[in-house]
Amino acid sequence: MSVQISASDVNKLRQQTGAGMMDCKKALVEANGDFEAAVDYLRKKGAKVAASRQDRESNEGVVIAQAAADGKSGVVVEVNCETDFVAKNADFVAFAERIANIALENKPATLDELKALQIDGKNIADALIEQTGVIGEKIDVSNYETVNAEKVVAYIHGNYRLGVLVGLSADTEGADEAGRDVAMQIAAMNPIAIDKDGVDQTTIDREIAIAKEQIIAEGKPAEMAEKIAQGKLNKFFKDNTLLNQEFVKDSSKNISQFLDSVSKGLTVTAFKRTQLGG
């Protein structure tokens, strides 16, 4: 009596091994539904088999940031593997860059939608499984971010370990260079928002509470704590919001003043910063 092989069984074996759908179905039929025997069958037939790596940590990889040719949009994609050796492989980097290109061309709304897009006649999710089988490490896309603006500049820092997108309010003369400078600032200083209006109330409340406790612990009167805490909050905004940060290349200006000097009224409308394993 033959064992019924369900589509979910075939998919499970495919996820586990990285072998093709038809090969997995045939292996399960030959093995009467026994997964271990099916894996052995695939190996004996010389199929590329990836050991089940769902529990493996894939914290290495590359971050690819790319802007569209028209400069109106950009994507950041993080493609992970398990070892630095694979991350530095030119073929792996090229594979990640192709995924970023596909994202840029199709503008999917979510990571799941990105994985459903086609690459070499198969969807990206299947290509990742296939790469796991070929390379022998867990390969996945863990992050996908987009920015749309009048001018988008992309920047990759530290041998593909960090990617930044900056959206500027206008595509003016000098915008490319200014955008790159701001992207380098974001890479180095890791701001939490564009300006203080972008900081969530929970963060503000926490900073004020911490400041008040520090002030009272220093022996200052409680009635002074509120005023001093507001001063500390302003310092927090200066250090942690992009437009208010001192420009790393010229500490006499903040980022807002720097952009205004490039073109009157030029500002940042959006940014994304993705760090490997972050």
Score class of each variant (00 low, 15 high):
A193W: 06
A27I: 06
G158P: 05
L276A: 11
Q245R: 05
L233A: 13
L111Q: 06
V164P: 04
R43S: 02
E223A: 12
K25I: 04
R206I: 09
D34S: 12
N254V: 02
G278T: 14
Q275F: 00
A69S: 10
A27M: 03
I135C: 06
F35R: 11
V153E: 05
Q257A: 15
E57H: 14
I5G: 01
R14M: 05
M21Q: 05
A109P: 11
S251E: 12
L13K: 00
R14K: 08
A209C: 05
G163R: 03
L42P: 11
F95I: 01
F236H: 11
Y41S: 06
L276H: 12
T132M: 11
D239H: 11
I135E: 05
S256I: 01
A183R: 06
A27H: 07
A51H: 11
M22H: 12
G33M: 03
E137F: 00
A90V: 03
K196I: 01
D197G: 11
A209Q: 12
A209P: 04
Q257K: 15
I5H: 01
P108A: 06
G121C: 05
D260F: 09
V62A: 12
G277A: 04
E246P: 14
E36H: 08
G167V: 00
E226F: 05
I228W: 04
G158F: 08
V199F: 03
I5T: 02
A67N: 05
C24E: 07
Q131H: 12
K138E: 00
D91C: 01
C81P: 07
R180P: 01
I192S: 08
A211Y: 01
E226C: 06
G71I: 08
V75G: 14
E137M: 01
I255H: 01
I135Q: 08
D84S: 10
L42A: 09
I215T: 09
E173S: 12
K88G: 04
D112T: 14
K264Y: 06
E246A: 15
L42T: 09
M224A: 08
Q131A: 14
A27T: 06
E82G: 03
C81H: 09
I208L: 15
A149M: 06
N11D: 10
E207K: 09
D91G: 03
K220I: 00
M184V: 01
N244H: 14
K107G: 09
D176F: 06
A109Y: 08
L266S: 09
V79E: 00
L276Y: 09
T203K: 13
S261T: 08
E223C: 00
N123F: 01
Y155E: 02
A50W: 00
E173R: 04
T132K: 13
G174N: 10
V10A: 09
K232N: 07
A96W: 00
G61D: 10
F237Q: 02
D195S: 11
G174M: 10
D112G: 13
T274H: 10
K212A: 10
D70K: 14
A187G: 04
G277H: 07
A103L: 10
K232F: 02
D84K: 10
S251Q: 13
G158Q: 12
N244L: 13
I102Y: 13
D55K: 15
